[in-house]
Design a protein around this nucleic acid. Structure first.
Lengths: 210, 210
DNA sequence: GTCTATACGTCGATAGAC
DNA sequence: GTCTATCGACGTATAGAC
């Protein structure tokens, strides 16, 4: 149940080749990307760093694109397994929490940007499918939390929940690239502004501010 | 005064080589990118489309990266010259206006994403410098407009102007990638939400909604 | 199943002929 | 100013050793 990360990636069916070894390679690759992002990471460079031939990598991943997506997917899962236990249910808090973890591994944030950009090119089906699905799921989950908080009177009701969800995700993504280009950009602080902006107007303010 | 777009790009000084021809190539290249984004756009592909050898392109631009940045810069300038005359002074309105134009040329939006991602890789100095500067300038300008509207009582004063500026830019950028992946994402509508979120709480609402 | 060796076509970039 | 030729590196594919 823990090593089923190929659901989205491999649709060719034959994905039982060396699950264990594949995991090893993935773990090593994550270290490489966490350090340097997608900077000088050709297939051949990654292979050299891991200590195999570049053709060996293609034995476990159909393409470089698929390896990159798998690396990001795996890194994300590992992180959410480690921290996701104490389930945060505050929508803005979730993003802030994620951002807090991200600032610790700029390489993965950079990999994320690289992959999103790649997903926008029509030839890259793998990353395109991955991120289309990912955005849909995230929007839906976040919209649910927002709608619930609207019912509870914690979030103003004059804005559409799913619209706010898109906005929060967009702001989070956009701020991360601004932060990568200029570390002075206060990723967490700026995201927290949504706590203020989303507070119901008539509410005696201070009920949700931390 | 109109063809000085090399300020940011060429720091090598010798930028008087074939200004006219350079413009021609740039204009042709913009057409290519407006259609297809950065999709199959190698130097050689672009050159073929224009009708020269790829080496010829490198006579006018030091690298592919520089050509891409020049294309985006030039396309943006052309657009702002065409529409920027009726200067919009409403900060949110500015972003909505820009977004409106962008949805007409998805290729350029995709090029933007590609270039931003490239700028995050340390080796790409040209795009990194361009976007670092660009974000700084945009943040400063937007923050000025926001602060002014705060003084006028049009925008709530309990949030920092420059923080909001970063947030607006981030949301705009993030929404554009979501929209490229899923055209159902209502780029303009979602950005307009900020008109509501930024309205002063005590204000008799409706004074700024359109 | 795991991997090396090797080859193919394309890429960005450079050097030099015309 | 523009070309051809060439370079090293890249992603990908295949053949076959173990």
């Amino acid at each position: 149940m823990t090593n089923d990360e190929s659901e989205l990636i491999g649709r060719s069916g034959s994905y039982q080749k060396g699950v264990a070894r594949r995991q090893e390679i993935l773990d090593r690759a994550i270290e490489v990307f966490a350090e340097r992002g997608a900077d000088g990471t050709s297939l051949r460079q990654i292979a050299k760093e891991i200590g195999v031939s570049h053709a060996a990598l293609l034995h476990y991943f159909d393409s470089r694109e698929q390896l990159l997506v798998a690396v990001y997917e795996h890194a994300e899962r590992v992180r959410s397994e480690r921290t996701g236990l104490r389930s945060i249910e505050d929508p803005v808090g979730m993003l802030v929490e994620a951002a807090t973890h991200n600032v610790a591994v700029p390489g993965l944030v950079q990999l994320y940007s690289t992959l999103v950009a790649a997903a926008l090119e029509s030839r890259n089906e793998v990353s395109r499918n991955f991120f289309t699905e990912r955005f849909e799921v995230t929007r839906r989950e976040l919209a649910g939390l927002i709608a619930r908080d609207q019912d509870r009177g914690l979030i103003r009701k004059d804005v559409d929940a799913s619209a706010i969800a898109s906005l929060l995700i967009a702001a989070s993504d956009g701020l991360q690239t601004q932060w990568l280009l200029d570390p002075n950009v206060d990723l967490r602080g700026f995201l927290q502004l949504f706590d203020i902006l989303l507070t119901p107007a008539v509410q005696p303010q201070g009920s949700r501010a931390d």
